[in-house]
Write a protein that binds this DNA or RNA. Structure first.
Length: 569
RNA sequence: CGGGGCGUAGCGCAGCCUGGUAGCGCACUCGGUUCGGGACCGAGGAGUCGGAGGUUCAAAUCCUCUCGCCCCGACCA
């Protein structure tokens, strides 16, 4: 492609509304343009990347034996109503009404729709295993779209669904998909980690996320350096931490005027956060629940909800805290608390703790569980850096940030049972299909790749998903230069190497800046000076020194470029 | 939805507090000089100041309502 005929609207200044590197660079590089909140145009370069990601995903998913289908994005409400998700999804569902007043919605995911295919088409154990997938647009009215392509209201997802006769079969399908996912992320040259995850709203038992490791990521991950344990913090198991043994001292009420936070109280009373019993009020199923964790820990709301047997818990409002404790926020405590009380296992072991007295400006010292309060003990804290690994019990967990690029689940019979998707097994018994589901955020991956591969000058595309492989820059308009470039351009294309030729009538500086911004993996410069000496210049985008490039005789240029393109991931 | 902020030329912004007839940089068009890391000179085109209502002789500026967007939280690929 000749730059002069392409649509690559690069801009010098970052858009004011962009906060993420990928959003800034994709916009500046002319890959995408915002249309509305969480909606983007893919301009030619952006679309080329998207297509390459899709191709890798298709190749690897096909390799597992899965079959590509295409389901509608516009869905009649009846299917989601069958499983109750029409209500459960709430405002996240884009709801539409047709001319006859019928209820429809745009598909946020397609478990119900594939399950409908399955209940019509899969009748015998002989039909399985079977995995169906699609690469398709999804719609979710996110509470807060953000980060450019990272979180959109309309986005491209690869969603696959497996159907098996039993749990063992489902585990097998799941394993096959796990291998495919590894290959996909490896081919895209992403540094990622597969982590244990919470199945969340999709439901099911086993699930793992593929987290691309970047500091700007929204998800917190803990991982063990000694074994392969890694988990999203919200799904991480925690081990109780023993407190130093002490003889119980007498309960004592202390005046702590205006000191409500852990930080203030520890300083004011001269105690460590490990001695604090942080008491938080949540609302679960309409009731106020007090949760006690150690001062240096945070509540894991997923674990808390599970411990309470509810779907969701919410932090209580300031007013609700006052109502529940009779004190201002900052002075809640378990001692004398009348409502439901949940105590984290580690907090339960704290001897002579410090906690709010449910009285504004008052705390208790030397609080002992069993003597001063009871409550239900459960692991409800978030895993933290330095925790002992719950798997090998040896390593100390480290913390990482990631972007969720893929998620795989074993669903079991949740959807098949609800929708009557059954088959006849060898014993002529009617059984529900055992399902798994597997998602990859295809459009999100475009942005994720940039979050991980960029520098101060712009993007650094991995070869496998770069919009073109080679950025050919010509300096000046001399006939010799243009002719040499043209020959190189055509020779490379004949070898299947995709070349973007910047043939614009621009000054060299602008061309180099745009080349760095767009970030194609190999830059080839043809200029009068080099050509006079019989050379062209080759510079990988990963080389950060602007002056450093390889001089190659014109005759060897094609072979040299080809070897670079073939070698890179 | 809770909290914060922003809507002025294609993009990035100033002007608003203290009303007086809209400006800067980039981009764009034309002419010229330039040409190996975002050149320079000259000339130009381009804006219902998000929308509606109000106050006023006069509103981008003050008031009310409204729409849109961004950022921080709860959700997710």
């Amino acid at each position: 492609m000749r730059f002069s005929r392409a649509l690559i609207p690069t801009v010098k200044e970052a858009p004011a509304d962009a906060a993420n590197v990928s959003h800034v660079l994709l916009t500046r590089g002319g890959f995408i343009r915002r249309v509305g909140a969480g909606m983007y145009d893919f301009l030619p370069l952006g679309l080329r990347v998207l297509r390459k990601v899709e191709t890798i995903v298709r190749e690897e998913i096909d390799r597992t034996g899965a079959l590509e289908v295409l389901m509608p994005a516009l869905l009649p409400a009846e299917y989601f109503k069958e499983t109750g998700r029409y209500d459960l999804y709430g405002p996240t569902l884009f709801r539409v009404t047709d001319r006859k007043g019928g209820d429809y919605h745009l598909g946020p995911t397609h478990e119900e729709i594939v399950t409908d295919i399955a209940r019509r088409e899969i009748r015998s154990w002989r039909d399985m295993p079977k995995t169906l997938y699609q690469v398709q647009v999804k719609f979710r009215d996110e509470p807060r779209p953000r980060g450019g392509l990272l979180r959109c209201r309309e986005f491209i997802m690869k969603d696959a669904y497996s159907f098996d006769v039993d749990e063992a079969g489902a585990a097998n399908s799941y394993e096959g998909m796990r291998v495919a996912y590894r290959r996909i992320f490896d081919r895209m040259a992403l540094s990622y980690r597969m982590v244990a995850a919470d199945p969340g709203a999709i439901g099911g038992s086993t699930s793992a996320e593929f987290q691309v490791l970047v500091d700007s990521g929204e998800d917190a991950i803990v991982a063990c350096p000694k074994c392969d344990y890694a988990a999203n913090v919200e799904a991480a198991k925690v081990l109780p931490i023993d407190a130093p043994d002490e003889a119980p001292a007498a309960l004592e009420k202390v005046h702590t005027p205006g000191h409500g936070t852990i930080d203030e109280v520890t300083k004011f009373l001269g105690v460590t956060p490990q001695r604090m019993l942080k008491s938080l009020v949540y609302v679960a199923g309409g009731n106020a629940v007090m949760v006690v964790v150690r001062g240096d820990h945070d509540v894991n709301e997923v674990l808390l909800a599970r411990a309470l047997g509810v779907d969701e818990v919410f932090m209580a409002s300031e007013a609700d805290v006052k109502k529940a404790t009779g004190a201002n926020v900052g002075f809640a405590g378990p001692v004398g608390f009348k409502g439901k009380l949940v105590v984290d296992r580690t907090a339960a072991g704290v001897k002579n703790g410090v906690t709010g007295a449910n009285e504004t400006d008052q705390h208790f010292k030397n609080v002992v569980r069993g003597r001063d309060f009871e409550g239900d003990v459960a692991d409800v804290r978030l895993a933290a850096t330095g925790d002992t690994c719950p798997s090998c019990k040896e390593g100390k967990l480290g913390s990482y940030k990631g972007i969720e690029a893929g998620h795989i689940f074993i669903l079991g019979t949740k959807y098949s049972a609800a929708m009557g998707a059954t088959f006849l097994d060898e014993a002529q018994q009617k059984k529900p299909l055992v399902m798994g589901c597997y998602g990859i955020g295809v459009s999100r991956l475009v942005a994720t790749a940039i979050e991980q591969h960029h520098d101060a000058d712009g993007m650094r595309w991995p070869m496998s998903i770069a919009p073109y492989h080679v950025h050919l820059v010509t300096i000046g308009k001399d006939d010799v230069v243009v002719e040499a470039a043209k020959q190189l351009y055509e020779a490379l294309w004949h070898k299947g190497i995709e070349v973007l030729w910047d043939d614009r009538d621009e000054r060299p500086g602008s061309k180099f800046k745009d080349a760095d911004l767009i970030g194609l993996p190999v830059r080839v410069t043809v200029g009068g000076k080099g050509l006079a000496a019989g050379n062209i210049e080759i510079k990988p985008r990963t080389e950060s020194d602007p002056k450093k490039s390889e001089l190659v005789p014109v005759a060897d240029a094609v072979a040299r470029v080809e070897s670079l393109v073939r070698a890179a991931p």
